[in-house]
Each structure stands twice: as structure tokens, then as C-alpha cells.
Design a binder for these strands. Structure first.
Lengths: 234, 234
DNA sequence: TAGATGTATTGATATATGTCATTATCTTTG
DNA sequence: CAAAGATAATGACATATATCAATACATCTA
């Protein structure tokens, strides 16, 4: 008999090796509180995890797979904010504002995530200053990354934006150099704020100049210095 | 004899009517702690308040005037993030990351600000959960606004972006309808991610269509519905 | 295996937007 | 007040980028 998606696994948070680093400062009793309201869920590639505009009830910790978070804008155009990999958590700004999701999340690989009730999370923020500070640290780093994204998207031309995307995938997501991605060309377009046709054209230029090797979704950055320069010069 | 810029005024935080709303949850003793490390500073129009890349040592509460915060990008191009008015505070993400400023701040009117030592601020975050939660609320609202900015800047065409800037100035900054701004055309360009010439052209179009009245830096939005529609349709 | 469906690629074309040069207007200052 | 300097406005032009249409390729499914 298969495990149901809402199965709460017996392995507790205290002994879990796959928990987000933000939980490092929690004691056994605090981890048990999280464990009590925790649910582990499996998502298949392409499945929507939560949708912009719906109530935000859970803290989500990704333990397996990969997830894209994206803002749904006008004319069915999306802007991908992050590609989240294990073990990172996803928590939008809605929790301390209007309790809503302000971006959507979708699995781009088969994924597993733990959902933790937000009441528990917020209680821990109030009672454990180290936890609160760690959370503020994470929020701040995300904010700093957003500033970089602002500059990339608004002040760089297409080659610079694609360079940024490729470097992001190599350094922050897959963390290897020849890397295989499950992102479509449309996803790359949604990360760089351009049309998919333009993405394809720029990738071709990079290939023709031997800056990258790209075969379908297998990428290898051959000339990192050159790619960095393209990122710099916009 | 004139007051020096570093003069610490005698009026305490406890009785101050000009303090940011985030301080509402602090008790007398906590406000006194802030008061002890507080310095009031006057800035003239055009003066740099702090610069991106320098150490971030203070929480800044604006009590008079107006301030633009902006990211300094490539090729001397800036991206204005916010126009801050009294009584709001300015606090970047650096405090909980690398202790650096990640954007610059400049007075666009003669301004007065209180600077509070960050050690005191961070101590209060740790010891007063209400204060921490209020701060998280503020950070979250800023983050949500940034998402809107992302969509405006990356998915809208110039008329939509200018519409967003005009509505922002009317609703969030000057809060009156005929309003007078001290922002240059270049500033409007830095808010909407375009060239100043393009700003001028779009403003002219809006004038020709009787959507706005614009005489130098005096603006009046004549047809709010139309401007909202332009903002929506991009 | 063949058809169907979605995704990727390419080329031709349209268009939004930036750049540059020039003139106009405002603001400062001696 | 006049000169100088900054800011604003306008037009001509260049170009980055999107759109549209056609084809190729891959992947699923019956």
C-alpha cells in the first residue's frame, strides 16, 4: 500500500539531517513543537505547490527536488524569483502582512517538502531571539539578492541577463559546471525578463563564441571569465 | 550661535510625536535606551545621507523632508527604490547580513533625521517580541512592494511604468492630487528604468491626452481611471 | 510504430526604447 | 542684470527586443 501524501513521517525534526539551517538554534523541545504540526508532502514535476493570491498557512522546507518561485504578472507573463534546492525553505512576506502568498511555487523536479504550521513558526520567532535573528538574516540576504536581480533585469541587456542566469544556475542551484537543468527555455525567459525566442538567440551566440556548450538542457560554461565580463558590461 | 549638525536635542523619544510607528510598542525604559544613542542630523537638498558600499551603523528615522533611496548600478545608472517621507525610517538589509549599505540615500528636500545606534536597535529586536514582529511586518510590506516594482519594471512598457510612478507619487509620497515634486526628470527616469528623454516624451503624451497636467514639477492627475488603466495594461 | 502534442529553433518583420545633437527654459551667481 | 550652468524639451536616428510564422525536434500516447 502506497504512502499517502499527507502521511506524517515518524522521523522527528530533532534527528532530521534534512532540516533548514535556520533550525540549528532550536532546542529539542522547540523542534518537537515543529514536529507536532509537521506534514511531509511529495510533489511531482510540474505540480503547483502553492499559488499567488491564496492564503499562506505554512512554512515550507524543501528536502528533495527543486522548486521555482515566480510572480504571476500581466498577460500570463511570469517572473521567476528563485530556484530553490534542498535544504532551503520557502517563506513569503505574506506571513507578517496579509497572510497571503505573493508568489507561486511549482516543482520543477519531483520534490519532497515539510510543511510547518505558521502559528508554531511565529511563536518560535517570538520566544527565541536567536531564531528570530537567523530568520531576519535570511530575509535580509534574500532582499540583497533581490537588489542584484533588480539591477540585472533593469540595467542589463539580454546577453548580460542570460549570463547572470547561467552563473546563477551554475553557482547557486546546481553547483557543478557541466550541469543538467530541468528548466524550459520559457523558464529561462521568465528568469531574465525576455521572450523565449530571445533566450534561444543569445544562447546560440554564446555557443558560437565558445562561451558555453549547450545541448538541450545540458549546459557547460567553457569561458567563465568571458561570461563574467558579459555580466559586468551588461 | 547655530546648532551644530551633531547636536543631540533634548526632547526625548518618549514624548516625541515624530517617531516612527514601529516604536509604538516600546516602553519608557526602551525608548530611553534609544534616546541615549540618538543623534539628530540636518541634511540639505542634494546631500548624500549614506552611500552604498559603506558600513551601515545606524537606524535612520526621517522626521522632516524627503529622501530618495537608490541602488547604484552599472554605467552610472541608478534605480530609485523608494521616496521616503516623514515619519518613516530607513533601514537596509545589511544590518542582518554584512553590516553594509546596499543602497544609497540622498535628501531631495531639506531634511531632518534621527540616527539610532544599531547595537541598541538589535538589542531591542532580541528583547521585545512585539518590536521584532512589527519590524518583520515592515520588512515584509517592503518586500511585497518590491514585487510590484519588479512587475512594473520588467513587464510593463513605458506608459505603464510612468503611470505607476505618478500614482506612487500621488498616493504614497505627496498624498494630494495636484502635487509639487522636487524630483528631476532624471529621478523619474531612475524610478521607471528608462531614459530621461523617454520620460519627457511619455509625460507629453499624457498631457496631450489630458490624462495629466504637468507644469515643470507641478503635477495634477486629471483622469485617474485612465491612468489606472494604463498602469494595468502595461 | 504512427500520430499527436508540446517544446525548441530559425528567420523575417515590427516596434519600443535609447542615443545623440540641438534648442529652449530655468536657476544660480558674480 | 547678464553670463553661466544646469535642467528640460524636441527631433532624427540607431538598435535592442518582441512578435509572428514556419519548421524542426522531442516526447508522449494509443
Amino acid at each position: 500500500m502506497p504512502k499517502y501524501q499527507y502521511t506524517q513521517y515518524s522521523k522527528g525534526c530533532a534527528t532530521c539531517q534534512d532540516k533548514a539551517d535556520i533550525f540549528a538554534c532550536l532546542c529539542q523541545a522547540e523542534l518537537d513543537q515543529i514536529d507536532d504540526t509537521r506534514v511531509e508532502v511529495h510533489f511531482k514535476t510540474g505540480e503547483l505547490i502553492f499559488k499567488q493570491g491564496t492564503p499562506n498557512m505554512h512554512f515550507l522546507c524543501l528536502t528533495q527536488g527543486k522548486v521555482k518561485t515566480y510572480i504571476e504578472g500581466y498577460n500570463n507573463k511570469n517572473l521567476i524569483l528563485n530556484i530553490v534546492k534542498p535544504i532551503e525553505y520557502i517563506l513569503g512576506p505574506g506571513i507578517y502582512a496579509d497572510q497571503m502568498h505573493h508568489f507561486s511555487a511549482m516543482a520543477i523536479e519531483d520534490s519532497v517538502a515539510c510543511l510547518v504550521d505558521l502559528v508554531t513558526f511565529k511563536k518560535l520567532i517570538r520566544t527565541n531571539p536567536d531564531f528570530a535573528e537567523d530568520f531576519l538574516r535570511k530575509v535580509s540576504l534574500q532582499s540583497i539578492y533581490n537588489y542584484e536581480l533588480f539591477i540585472s533585469l533593469t540595467q542589463k541587456q539580454m546577453p548580460g541577463r542570460i549570463a547572470d542566469v547561467l552563473l546563477y544556475l551554475k553557482d547557486k542551484v546546481y553547483c557543478t559546471n557541466p550541469f543538467h537543468s530541468t528548466l524550459s527555455r520559457q523558464d529561462l525567459a521568465d528568469m531574465s525578463g525576455m521572450s523565449k525566442e530571445s533566450v534561444i538567440r543569445i544562447l546560440r551566440e554564446f555557443k558560437d563564441e565558445n562561451i558555453i556548450r549547450a545541448n538541450g538542457n545540458d549546459f557547460e560554461i567553457l569561458n567563465i571569465d568571458h561570461l563574467n565580463k558579459i555580466s559586468q558590461t551588461g
